[in-house]
Design a protein around this nucleic acid. Structure first.
Lengths: 386, 386
DNA sequence: CCCCTACTGTAAGGTTCCTTTACAATTAAC
DNA sequence: GTTAATTGTAAAGGAACCTTACAGTAGGGG
């Protein structure tokens, strides 16, 4: 009870539970809401009246069929707030605008080289996306941004991003000043992990990891249903993982040519494909092998072995229930690669997770950013202030 | 609110908060309790009356000094419940009995070879300890047991314990049948981690790890203030961690001669000491080096390097704020070894935790088991049933 | 076609649990 | 020896839930 601040604690809790319920289950009747939230019909009615007065819910229809009168269906008002999510890549910025219910209204793109600095790039992309969505920038409750690089969990600012020289410490402050509203920045791999958890393979799984295998290498760690960022935001930087067969990394330079990074990045895969006498990029060879090309078979087996070498270390530390393979290589490898990796992990230690490929279609980073932005926007909009 | 079960939810929450407060802060007055729990003086008084009627709190004195009447001091009744904790080792079983306030009343020991089976061994040790404490076994609210080996977090039963052939799946059921009360079994390293968190170096730290370096090798992972056991209870089995410079482990056999285990166990340390031309056991050489023996200096440096090789991998995955070195080697190495390890980790990757030696005196496993047992016993005793 | 049943939505009154205000009793300090 | 701060209890009040009761509506059986 910690000193009931004048703000009605229980009521707010119930109001919020009701809103979350309507968001996840769709429109509900008074009675059903009462059952789900744990309130009587009467109290549920009072709750809905309150939320209606605040402009957060409205009657969206009537329940057909059934004995008595057609009960009114209540739902969250989509225009109660909007969110913009962005994925900042070295060569492309993508954006998505959604309303508070999570419905995507518009997307946008920008070549980052067209803009002079991060704030300009973000402003231009968001301006375009909001215009397409038919809303104004002032209606955005928050901006959620996914980038490569490490984010300081205390400040929420970027510490450094190897691939994006313009995105450095201070960007958060600049964006806040420019937009005058909450700005969230998060590591791209962590966001892919969140996306997978909210709508993909690791949905409902308490302890899981998502291995991002692409140009860079990363890991999203989910412990007890929550993303683990680490004390300095560096959790999951497995490019630096020392594995047998790779030279040990030195210092905090990018470990392009050492450690786990040197074994399984897209570049390393290209080299490996050539070493196996295959033509085409490494990712193409993965696709070929998955589709049954026997020449690419030993290449895929070696890839699985290399992945397992690093992932086994992670499993020994965390013992996750599930390991999702994502990124270009993870997606290309599909369940064939996942199965091989799982078998290889089993030969290396006692903790064997279920290994599966990503189930998110489209851009998982953008999806995760949207999810994170929605969470914050809902806190903003739904939390009673006054 | 989730459908208020007839059990007074708010009241129970407040009652429990008050009890926890009296346990951690010692006796309090009505008014002070109200302030701390967040209740008015009147309600705090009613709360204490309730708990007094249930025999859980009593007046333990009066506050001297101050203006008005001497306020009564209320405290938890120690005899409200008792706990027994055990540490099962291959060659020794130790036990400790404490009352609900955490005051240790007696300890006991047993040579496990004197008993025919685990249940007998536990019974004998507990019987002896309770007798010394002047209580009966029936007054014990729960038994908390620390063992090497892996515990299934779903069932709470042992999966396997390499060093204790008699402790295998089914022991939990046997103990429950024999004692007819809650039995908790937990991995010894995890318990050392809990002890360190509740009264040692990692107290108040959200994300930390404790590396146990002894005959075996283990890691306790604490994420967001909570012990992370992993899906199959195998989190922290870092003996199997593949590191450069050690042969890769195969399958789930004990990795005595491969992986991280082969580099830094007590046995590996003995071998290493000999390789450096030192006499005496590895642990003795660590002590000598720490105390300034220049001959043992290169040995200590190599030990730190080896430790860092494995710990760097852990830091890359988890990015903990703090890393505690425990076990015989960790304790012997003290802050000298810890400092070297920290420096070595810094040279291997971007995530550098503060590395410190354990601050727990006595047996940290027994201490952790007691802590875990107290937590459960308090839930048992303090939770209003009926 | 009519009535019964099951359901919706609101009104009235009750319960739980905490709060504020008021006051007599107590004790250190002036 | 009076004063001021405190303690502990009593009485009244408010927040937020609940149950009961009832008028009104829609589908289905006779």
């Amino acid at each position: 009870m910690s000193r009931a601040p004048k703000t009605h604690l229980i009521r707010d809790t119930n109001d919020r539970a009701a809103l979350d319920l309507m968001l996840s289950n769709g429109p509900v009747t008074k009675t059903r809401l009462g059952e789900l939230v744990g309130l009587s019909k009467v109290t549920a009615g009072q709750l809905l009246t309150r939320l209606g007065d605040r402009g957060l819910v409205e009657v969206v229809g009537a329940q057909q069929g059934g004995r008595g009168p057609n009960a009114a269906l209540y739902g969250v008002v989509p225009s109660a707030g909007y969110v913009a999510a962005l994925h900042i890549g070295p060569d492309q910025i993508t954006a998505s605008v959604a309303d508070i219910t999570g419905t995507e209204l518009a997307t946008g793109e920008l070549d980052p080289h067209e803009a002079s600095d991060p704030v300009e790039a973000v402003r231009a992309t968001v301006a375009h996306a909001t215009r397409s969505a038919g809303i104004t920038m002032s209606q955005l409750r928050c901006l959620s941004i996914g980038t490569p690089g490490m984010i300081d969990p205390r400040t929420g600012d970027i510490r450094f991003a190897n691939d994006l020289p313009d995105w450095r410490a201070g960007v958060l402050e600049d964006l806040r000043r420019s937009f005058q509203r909450p700005i969230l920045i998060e590591n791209d791999v962590n966001l892919a992990g969140l996306a997978e958890q909210s709508a993909g393979a690791s949905h409902g799984v308490k302890d899981s990891v998502l291995a991002w295998i692409d140009r860079g290498l990363g890991l999203a760690v989910i412990v007890d249903g929550r993303l683990h960022r680490g004390a300095g935001g560096g959790a999951g930087e497995i490019g630096y993982l020392a594995v047998p067969g790779a030279s040990t990394p030195h210092g905090t330079d990018s470990p392009q040519h050492a450690a786990f990074q040197s074994l399984v990045s897209v570049e390393a895969m290209d080299t490996l494909a050539r070493a196996f006498g295959l033509s085409g990029s490494g990712v193409d060879c993965v696709r070929a092998a998955v589709e049954g090309d026997v020449d690419a078979e030993p290449f895929l087996e070696e890839l699985a072995r290399r992945l397992a070498l690093g992932l086994a270390g992670i499993c020994v530390v965390l013992d996750p229930e599930l390991c999702v393979l994502a990124g270009e290589v993870g997606r290309a490898g599909g369940s064939v690669l996942a199965g091989r990796v799982q078998k290889a992990i089993a030969s290396l230690g006692p903790n064997v997770p279920t290994v599966v490929p990503t189930e998110i279609s489209g851009d998982p980073v953008l999806r995760g950013a949207l999810q994170m932005g929605l969470d914050t926007a809902r806190d903003e909009v739904f939390t009673h202030q006054g």
